[in-house]
Design a protein around this nucleic acid. Structure first.
Lengths: 117, 117
DNA sequence: CGATAATGATACGGCCCCGTAACGATCGGG
DNA sequence: CCCGATCGTTACGGGGCCGTATCATTATCG
């Protein structure tokens, strides 16, 4: 059951959601940070720095820095893996879950406003 | 004719598109920069610094800096308004139009892959 | 054990961006 | 004319993020 949407509709939706994110004063996340955040919240755990780096096709320091920022924003946390203490497990937070949920609702709401254009 | 999409679908779509943008090596635009870019390409001209600042709910220097960067990336250009030389008109570029078009196609493509989840 | 591999974090020089405040250029009304 | 209003830009100190190289810690295997 594919979702049908035309490029012109997609672009209007993309713009409206970004406009809302900016206007609501949400932290100005980059595409990389957004991809990391959503991957952690939508994909099955466990999530590691190395795993995220591979999925995004970026280097490990990119992930470490993004986690620093997202952690500072309270959107997720890090925990050492006690089974293999080299690993760090990225975990969800209540604030992060709420932010992701709000984003989902935001997209859904604006989708309703997208006409046949 | 509203577009029907559930929050869980919206989030998966949002993630997939951001993943592609990151993996394709596209410049890592922030939410603000994306909002500006799409506004210029989807809304009717003319676009001014002040107008964009008002639409996004941010200060003028934010727009100026974003235009510096987007201009450096070749995604748009600035031109002085000869009618009122205080104004600067933001204009589209071929590269910018292509980038926006790619984004629209990207969203549309991934929408097809979104199932009933 | 000891050597090697793997993980995530850090150091570095450089650039971008922030918010606030001030600036020069330009227009318009008295 | 000139003064005030408006336009976009720049200056400032501070912080974030970049890519590359290196680091300390931990695990693995001979």
């Amino acid at each position: 059951m594919p979702l049908e949407i035309r490029p012109s509709q997609a672009l209007r939706l993309w713009r409206q959601v970004h406009l809302d994110l900016v206007r609501d004063g949400e932290p100005d996340l980059s595409a990389r940070q957004t991809a990391i955040l959503l991957t952690v919240y939508l994909e099955l755990p466990p999530h590691t720095v190395r795993g995220l780096a591979k999925q995004l096709g970026v280097t490990k320091p990119v992930i470490t820095r993004a986690l620093d920022t997202l952690g500072k924003l309270g959107l997720l946390t890090r925990k050492r893996d006690e089974e293999d203490r080299r690993n760090v497990v990225i975990q969800r937070t209540v604030a992060g879950a709420l932010a992701v949920e709000r984003l989902g609702d935001l997209v859904t709401e604006h989708a309703k406003d997208i006409g046949a254009g």
